[in-house]
């Protein structure tokens, strides 16, 4: 067996790695490696906050959909992928900067989401919870594979002027696209909140989310509202895709990269809460970043899942969720 021939050397490597990791962590804690190490800690913290903003973007749509439809949208990752391909195509074939394309892609994704609910998910599931879950799963399978058939499985990216634009803050270099994405996610969360709180449509959505039967009596048609909410949730993904593209890559599987994180954020922040999605996103970003720093990038992601489990077990309503 080949795997055992290297056993001794492998042991050494793992050991070597662990030792390095330990001295490194100690260095961070005591700061005895001078400013470089504390810089790394600070940088990791800030970087975590920035990434958290991007995560929040993806989670905003999910939390809206959960808050209104009370279902876990399995198609979320796939729809993010669709939006990213749209943004990528506009950049690559039309030469439109992803930021300029944002309104177009967001509007387009609203249409996609609305249509998807109106003609596929809603029709197939007849509003039943379990069936909606299966239907979103089915939509994900179709979308992933349709894009695979169209674009192939390779990773694509764009390089724009902004790609290497860095913002120098003291000794740190912050990627400008990430800072923009962070700011935009705060703005979009604010817009969503204002929309839900201040407009008639927003109030109707909230009414349906709380009391679908009551809303029906008030003359609101829940199925229309569901389609609307789904569309808005997916439009958020359109915005997220455009903001992500300059600092990320596109492939038919890119959605899977974000989907677990988005679920975690939604639960952490409280399902249906916009401020929760933003704060949850930042917390998860920081957890992941610092987890990577202290546990190594291999074991680091475990921090996300552990936070997730702890929140579910200790405070299932999340940080900002209403008590059930």
């Amino acid at each position: 067996m080949e795997v055992f021939c290297f056993f001794s050397s492998e042991k050494k490597v793992f050991f070597f790695e662990k030792k390095k990791q330990k001295t490194f962590v100690r260095g961070v804690l005591r700061g005895h490696r001078g400013f470089v190490v504390t810089d790394i800690f600070l940088a990791a913290l800030i970087n975590g906050i920035l990434i958290g903003g991007v995560y929040a973007l993806v989670a905003l749509g999910l939390t809206l959909i959960y808050g209104v439809l009370h279902i876990v949208n399995f198609a979320h990752g796939s729809l993010l992928m669709v939006a990213m391909f749209a943004a990528w195509l506009l950049a690559e074939k039309v030469g439109l900067s992803p930021y300029a394309a944002l309104p177009v892609v967001a509007a387009g994704m609203f249409g996609v989401g609305w249509g998807l609910y109106r003609f596929v998910i809603g029709r197939v599931s007849r509003g039943e919870d379990r069936a909606i879950l299966l239907a979103t799963l089915g939509v994900a399978v179709v979308l992933d594979n349709a894009f695979l058939a169209m674009f192939g499985g390779d990773t694509r990216q764009i390089e724009t002027d902004l790609t290497f634009a860095m913002w120098e803050v003291g000794p740190l270099l912050l990627s400008v696209p990430k800072v923009i994405a962070f700011g935009a996610s705060l703005a979009i969360a604010g817009l969503l909140w204002a929309f839900m709180a201040l407009t008639d449509t927003g109030r109707a959505i909230r009414a349906v989310a709380k009391e679908p039967e009551g809303a029906r009596l008030m003359g609101i048609r829940p199925d229309r509202i569901f389609a609307l909410a789904y569309g808005i949730g997916i439009a958020c993904l359109g915005a997220a895709a455009c903001l992500l593209l300059p600092s990320f890559f596109v492939s038919p599987h890119v959605g899977n990269v974000f989907v677990l994180v988005a679920f975690t954020i939604v639960v952490l922040g409280g399902m249906g809460s916009f401020p929760g999605a933003v704060v949850g996103g930042i917390l998860i970003g920081v957890t992941e970043s610092l987890g990577g720093l202290f546990l190594g990038e291999s074991l680091g992601p475990i921090g996300i899942s552990l936070v997730f489990i702890a929140v579910l077990l200790l405070r299932p309503t999340g940080l900002f969720g209403a008590t059930r």
Partner: peptide, 22 residues
Amino acid sequence: KAMLPHATPTRDFTNIVLRIKA
């Protein structure tokens, strides 16, 4: 000087690159 394993997927490499820099 260091071996830095990372998970697949890893969404951001800033931390790893900062460690490389250090």
